[in-house]
């Protein structure tokens, strides 16, 4: 249907509507009133309930611990310049991990071959724009050098989060940084590992996305 005809029809629907009164929107704050807490501590507690892990302290030691646990494997990582820990990628390579290229070609055929190369990567290494203490979530934004797939296809996702980017709740971040959302093609809130409870309501991790999510705090 033509856009104008469609919208005219909608308008005629509204004119017949008996909607409850809809006042103009309250311009007041949209942030929920929540108790003051230690943000890092709260973040870690909530993330743990979601089967994710928050690493505070020496970030390099945290990365080495993760690699020691799973052994070397293919890595899909953001470019160094987008990571708040300059030698993070290097740590993986030093431990015997091979890095996969994250740039997906536009052509159908090349796309197939390329994505096939990293659909079974073990590690994904990304930065994080923000963290939400209340929900244990991180915000990850796409862009050049910041492939979306790095936080999606690996079994183990490691996100590097600067400590001064932890916000009280999603709305505390969004009301300050709402414009950042649409400035890129994809902004995702990641709240723990991929999960499903479709079969008999039993929780299973890693159904399509990562089975492990490690948030490493960078001071």
């Amino acid at each position: 249907m033509e856009r104008d005809a469609f919208l005219t029809r909608v308008r005629s629907g509204i004119s017949g509507a008996t909607l409850p009164p809809a006042p103009e929107l309250d311009p007041g704050p949209l942030t929920p009133e929540l108790a003051d807490v230690d943000l890092v501590e709260r973040f870690g507690t909530v993330l743990a309930t979601l089967d994710g892990t928050l690493h505070t302290g020496d970030p390099r030691a945290a990365i080495e611990e993760i690699i020691a646990h799973h052994g070397p494997g293919p890595l899909l990582a953001w470019d160094d310049e987008h990571l708040p820990l300059p030698d993070a990628v290097h740590r993986f390579l030093q431990s015997g991990c091979a890095r996969t290229d994250g740039v997906v070609p536009h052509s159908a055929e090349k796309r197939l071959t390329h994505q096939g190369g990293y659909f079974d990567v073990l590690y994904g290494l990304t930065g994080a724009e923000a963290g939400f203490a209340e929900t244990g979530s991180i915000v990850v934004r796409s862009g050049p050098g910041r492939p979306r797939m790095a936080s999606l296809v690996p079994l183990v996702h490691i996100a590097l989060l600067p400590s001064d980017r932890i916000f009280r709740s999603p709305m505390h971040w969004l009301t300050e940084h709402g414009a950042d959302v649409a400035a890129v093609a994809n902004t995702v809130y990641i709240t723990g590992p991929s999960r499903t409870a479709d079969i008999e309501q039993r929780l299973e991790l890693g159904v399509h996305g990562p089975r492990e999510v490690h948030v490493v705090v960078i001071e």
């Binding site: 740039v103 929900t135 862009g143 050098g145 797939m149």
Partner: peptide
């Protein structure tokens, strides 16, 4: 408190993006 993945999409892959779809369509249904 939040679903695991809250995916916020604004348009197709941007010119220098590494990945994402080349085309993005929204169908608004009455």
């Amino acid at each position: 408190s939040l679903t695991t993945y809250t995916n916020l999409i604004t348009g197709p892959r941007r010119p220098d993006d590494d990945d994402g779809p080349d085309e993005f369509h929204v169908v608004i249904v009455d």
